[in-house]
Design a protein around this nucleic acid. Sequence first.
DNA 1: TTTAGCACTCATAATAATAGAGTGCTAAGC
DNA 2: GCTTAGCACTCTATTATTATGAGTGCTAAA
Lengths: 344, 344
Amino acid sequence: MDTMNDRLREVLKSVVVYHIRLGVPIGSRTITKLSEIGLSPATIRNVMADLEELGYLMHPHTSAGRVPTEKGYRFYVDQLLGDLLEPVQPINWPSRPEGPADMLHNASRLLSHMTNYAGVALAPKPAQRTFKQIEFVGLRPRQVLAIFVSEEGLLHQTLFELDRDVTVNELSAMSEYLNQRFGGLPLHKVKAQILEDMRAVKERYDWLLRHALQLGQQAIDTAAEGELYLEGTTNILTQANFDDLDELKRLFKAFEEKYQLLKILEQCAETPGVQVYIGSENAALGTRTCSLVASTYECDGRPIGSVGVIGPTRMDYSTVIPLVQSIAQQLSRFFGEWREGPAR
Amino acid sequence: MDTMNDRLREVLKSVVVYHIRLGVPIGSRTITKLSEIGLSPATIRNVMADLEELGYLMHPHTSAGRVPTEKGYRFYVDQLLGDLLEPVQPINWPSRPEGPADMLHNASRLLSHMTNYAGVALAPKPAQRTFKQIEFVGLRPRQVLAIFVSEEGLLHQTLFELDRDVTVNELSAMSEYLNQRFGGLPLHKVKAQILEDMRAVKERYDWLLRHALQLGQQAIDTAAEGELYLEGTTNILTQANFDDLDELKRLFKAFEEKYQLLKILEQCAETPGVQVYIGSENAALGTRTCSLVASTYECDGRPIGSVGVIGPTRMDYSTVIPLVQSIAQQLSRFFGEWREGPAR
DNA sequence: TTTAGCACTCATAATAATAGAGTGCTAAGC
DNA sequence: GCTTAGCACTCTATTATTATGAGTGCTAAA
């Protein structure tokens, strides 16, 4: 009995489902009564004992029912969830997004509202982006605002202080140069190219050229910080069990700093499709009692970013997973269409 | 005995100070022992009874010491704090801010780190700002990015979709028109003027002019949403008393939505100087157990925005108030210098 | 006016008793 | 051989009971 036969699967499934639904340890009687498994409590107890031995269930204490272990959740998510996945309810996007940034913001908000957990969206990874256009706007005598636009439609602005005045013409000469030279190239190539150009130009005394390259480089570097949209963290306060206060604090710390979350989502953006990280798999977030359901979204067939939901380990995977998947698909479509050309 | 004599003041002060320091109800013995008031517990008890009758102190229960009421805190802050205000420790600003937005962000972060409460900064109120410059960048055939810059150095970008293509020349014609016409005017005047111009132009069929006005209007309207920098909310989790969970949730909800907080700070920006809002005076934030210490910062002698700290009612006012004041002064200086001209 | 003394109150902590949920095991039933 | 009824057992959660002690309010004396 060290492999999972049908009955073991069935009972495990019931325990997980009812525990998610009821939020309490599940006893043998509960299963005979609620499920259609047609076995007596005694039999269920035997099966549960087996499941516990195999590491899928655990006992909070002697006279309590069973609770899924992380291994139990993992098995449930990977193997048992198939026929339980709920159809996605129609998604009510707010009116026309103003652009990709707005779209991602909406996505995280929708995820949060529809699940009552926290919703999160990672903007296309900088390395994945394509240089489209850079523009310089003179704000004051020696101060320049650089606006960097990627092919994906994401904007980044950086403020510069120069060591001498620049005319409008010089500024547009600079941007024209950069746009001509780098337009259409992926960012990582642009970076390398700029470094090379800088070396080449070093000898010549061409103030404009040198500073154009410098500004371009810095603008791109600044844009390279990942962007994260995080909404509905308050929901976690409502859902969380307050018996572990430290854990809660660590989680909120991670929310506030965003950095860890960003790393995790970036890593998740490596492999396409929906992924579920359960409990201590999210240790980097400072929590062992939360799960992350995340999916990549794509453009041009390649994953460029990810969206997801953070909730308690006993979150309702059967609705969250399809929802995240659906939102990701709609993001993919959006970025696809965006790339195609201007809307309408 | 319905006015506050010296002894009443002295005892009230002790209760507040020790309660802030120790976090527990203060009994008569504690005061005789810790303070240099030189009176026996019995006497203190009499005084405390008076203070309670006057509404400055309260009893959690019969056999507990006294705790300040809101009225007590109010009196303490307004009348007793004078000689207790701690000198501000030197403030360690991070390296040169990139601009006003960065500066405000730094301010809220500093406040949060130095107090271990939440720090908040409100950007100059839109109505207070002055139109400096608007620039249009064409991103795609019918799509335009408007960058609006105020005299105070705050940037706002808005994305537009037009109903026909525009050339670079047309875009710069539009921005030049707007800049010439409105440069240097306070925003509220610009708004009115645009509306007027729009009526005037309505008759003529001048696509460019009409759309310039329209874009200008929308860009300004978008910029008119207040900007709020909020940091260190996690600290509240650590400080808060968890006996009122609902309260905590409401507070974090308010943090997440920012809107209420924005309103309060905007209102606070009306009157110059440091202000303290105690307990239920912050009901709009969903909390009755927090205080807000806020101060306006100025430019050109007029208050333009505000910064502050949100913490528990029993926060350490004697260090927080001078700190907020100092940060506000430094913001004022920054905005003053910024207005003067480019740095260095 | 101040203070020592003392009875009184009430929250908090510790202890004990009870109820109930759920288990594991055994032996009987199909 | 698998299933199940029965039962003793375990352990939590609830409630009741009883200290403990901090701090008060009042009174009477200094």
